[in-house]
Design a protein around this nucleic acid. Structure first.
Lengths: 248, 248
DNA sequence: CGCACACTTGAACCCCCTCAACCCAAGTGG
DNA sequence: CCACTTGGGTTGAGGGGGTTCAAGTGTGCG
């Protein structure tokens, strides 16, 4: 990748050579609020790293020395109980910022699902960046607020929804916006395992599997491969997810 | 509505009479980061309001025009499903900032438990304050991050803990720091009803009641009144909450 | 191919929910 | 002062949704 990028000797203000400038994650990430001409500050503060599938790159409870910006791949974020019970608190994809939980130690662990690429910032350097770019800080506040809303929605799911409703909600939430599945039905990539989905929805993997099979039998979805679902009847799935049919 | 609510005549520059200066919530709230001499900017932007018990002062889905800073009392924050199922996503007390979820509409409803007093800010005025006081913005980011950590802990509770573990976790989390109960055992104020606790923990009120009774029978807690618990055996309750005894 | 791992499917069980009765304290009004 | 109401809380019996345990069935990759 790095070969043949004919770069004129790097000056602090580089014209087109800055890696952040070409980063595919930039438009979907907090970096988007930084002007092109300031991007070199970002790239100077960050280290690009990649993790193989299954690699755990954040450990719950460890000192939080780094922040991560995911530029490619998927990761699961989880919390554990001493006896091994696991709750996945979120999945991170391109553009997601990890480590927002500004405290002494990480509030959750993170493990790569497929091959994950990240920009890593040290705590110190990120704080310096925040001082210099108020827009970045405001963007982080916005991101954190949105995460909070998502987390509250998940609490409703975990506390009050049935298995059917949870799985339907999950499918709707992970549906990709731009890419419909064949004839306009929603395409849902599922890079994680059924067990991961179960630990995200507060169910067992058997219940997730059974419910997906049920949806398939009812022609609500199709499962062309293990790692992809198609919403054949978006309307119906949405209704189940929002528990709309059971009202009254 | 109520008697004798004489609001101190508010001038934009009050010398020592600034209500924010005397506000008991200030040290526990985001306002704490504002210098004394700038406090008048805060009080000028806010309107003090009180709500009777049972009053709903935020409705989920309504346009989010105001932010609230709770200065006294307790409120429950909740989300509803169409058929009436309810999930309480948090309880707000003195110093808590509501409406952080910066979006077009409120992500949850709020209802006063006891008599609640708040400072109300319009969205527009708050944003102006954020522009002028970067420290306030940073503090909000900190608060939001902490809320996120709490939310993730609650996801673990809702998704993976047993009823016993949930109730024990709740008691430990709501234990008041400074005021021990009599002989050093932890005092836990419970201004909310059993039904509220149940909707917070993803249980039924019967299960909450049964579990509390069980704890009482086992001499782990005492229930001197309906709205107060005492942790007689903090150690044991903590162990149950963290599922520490069940490991291996 | 063939192993390994993930997923599916089935049957029995259990924790918590549902439904229902009862208790108790605080009003309220005659 | 007591009968009645009301709202929250407790306790009990029975049932159900999801889990647990246990085989099977792909499916991807060496």
């Amino acid at each position: 990748m790095s070969l043949s990028t004919k770069m004129p000797a790097l000056t602090s203000h580089d014209r087109r050579g800055d890696p952040c400038l070409r980063c595919g994650a930039r438009p979907e990430s907090v970096c988007g609020v930084i002007d092109d001409c300031d991007l070199h500050r970002l790239s100077a503060a960050s280290v690009v790293t990649a993790f193989d599938p299954g690699t755990s790159f954040i450990s719950e409870g460890e000192p939080a020395e780094h922040f991560f910006n995911v530029t490619d791949g998927h990761a699961k974020l989880y919390k554990l109980l001493p006896d091994g019970r696991r709750q996945i608190v979120g999945f991170a994809r391109r553009g997601d910022f990890l480590g927002l939980a500004v405290s002494k130690s990480y509030a959750f662990g993170a493990e790569a699902i497929d091959r994950v690429r990240v920009c890593r910032f040290s705590r110190r350097k990120l704080e310096a960046l925040l001082d210099d770019f108020p827009a970045l800080e405001r963007q982080l506040l916005k991101v954190a607020s949105n995460e909070l809303v998502v987390a509250q929605e998940q609490m409703l799911l975990l506390g009050r929804k049935t298995a059917r409703e949870r799985v339907a909600s999950f499918l709707r939430a992970r549906e990709e916006r731009p890419v419909p599945c064949g004839d306009g039905t929603g395409r849902v990539p599922l890079p994680m395992t059924r067990g991961d989905i179960a630990d995200y929805l507060g169910l067992t993997l058997e219940t997730v599997s059974r419910t997906l099979s049920q949806f398939k039998r009812d022609r609500l979805i199709a499962l062309p491969t293990l790692s992809e679902a198609c919403l054949l009847d978006r309307e119906a799935v949405t209704e189940i997810a929002e528990a709309a049919g059971t009202a009254l």
